[in-house]
């Protein structure tokens, strides 16, 4: 049983980790916690669904088109809304992302909300890859793990081994200095939002078969992903991945051994406890402003 628990922990954990990564990339670049992340992913997932079912595209084509859409959505969000904020402060940004979240939620509900749909991927939740006496590994489980891993590796490569990644990291550390050195900081932030939106969209596509395709489908994963990001301290990318996996593990173990009823909130208890001891998350030094 423990093996089965570990597998489900890893699967949910890596989905949380993807959402956490998506949020952390933006947070690192702009100190904005993007509450619209979930809804952006949800809309992207619906796009995949429409491309697959209404237009009958093959899966890979639909995926590529969706990710392009997600990228543009992220860029547009940054360009049309975030960049226009007059008095940028944390609360203002939070409100903008919440507003965008409501907007997308409403639009999705308006267009697709009237009925629930089932979302099928080439890798299904019911097809079993490995079955032993102690555990079952479904196609979806395996695919989720592999995809999450691949995304993390790609992100790592982009950030650490490309010119774009170098520019992104420069902007994260000091926007002013980056601009003086000829880096178009605004454009970099836009691309950051785009990349983050892609990562979120992939998480959305992985989530949809587990829940049902519904405008509220990303609420819980978003909150958990955000929690995971905070747990691993928003600014350390390896930290948020570990945060996500940890959260998946805690949830599943608690759900199995203690109480299934309170599974969904145990995460917050843990987070409160950890933040009480380490106010900036597990993997950060608490930052004291110099005077």
């Amino acid at each position: 049983m423990i093996v089965q628990l570990l597998i489900s922990s890893l699967v949910t954990g890596s989905i949380y980790a993807l959402i956490a990564l998506a949020m952390a990339i933006i947070y690192k670049a702009s100190e904005i916690p993007n509450f619209a992340q979930g809804e952006m992913a949800m809309v992207s997932t619906y796009i995949t669904f429409v491309l697959l079912s209404t237009f009958g595209f093959p899966f890979l084509t639909a995926l590529v088109l969706t990710l392009t859409f997600a990228f543009l959505l992220g860029i547009l969000f940054e360009f049309l809304l975030i960049r226009r904020a007059k008095e940028p402060n944390l609360l203002g940004f939070i409100i903008i992302t919440l507003g965008f979240q409501l907007l997308l939620f409403g639009l999705a509900g308006w267009k697709w909300g009237s009925d629930q749909r089932t979302f099928t991927l080439p890798f299904s939740e019911s097809e079993v890859v490995v079955r032993t006496s102690s555990f079952v590994l479904t196609e979806h489980n395996l695919a989720s793990l592999i995809i999450a891993m691949v995304i993390m590796v790609i992100l790592y490569l982009i950030l650490n081994h490309t010119k774009l990644g170098l520019a992104m990291r420069a902007c994260q550390q000091n926007v002013g200095a980056a601009m003086f050195n000829g880096i178009p900081a605004n454009r970099i932030l836009g691309i950051t939002f785009g990349i983050s939106s892609i990562v979120g969209a992939i998480a959305g596509i992985l989530v949809a078969p587990i829940t049902t395709l519904d405008p509220t489908m990303m609420w819980d994963p978003l909150v958990k992903g955000f929690a995971a990001a905070v747990l691993g301290s928003m600014k350390s990318l390896p930290g948020v991945v570990i945060g996500g996996l940890l959260l998946g593990l805690i949830e599943n173990l608690f759900g199995f051994y203690v109480s299934l009823e309170f599974k969904s909130i145990v995460a917050f208890g843990v987070i409160m406890l950890i933040l009480f001891i380490k106010p900036s998350g597990l993997f950060a030094k608490h930052y004291i402003r110099k005077v």
């Binding site: 007059k86 203002g92 409100i95 507003g99 965008f100 409501l102 939620f105 409403g106 308006w110």
Partner: peptide, 14 residues
Amino acid sequence: RWVLTGLILILIIL
């Protein structure tokens, strides 16, 4: 309703 509430929030901040 959600669309308009969201729009209002964004417009207020901007």
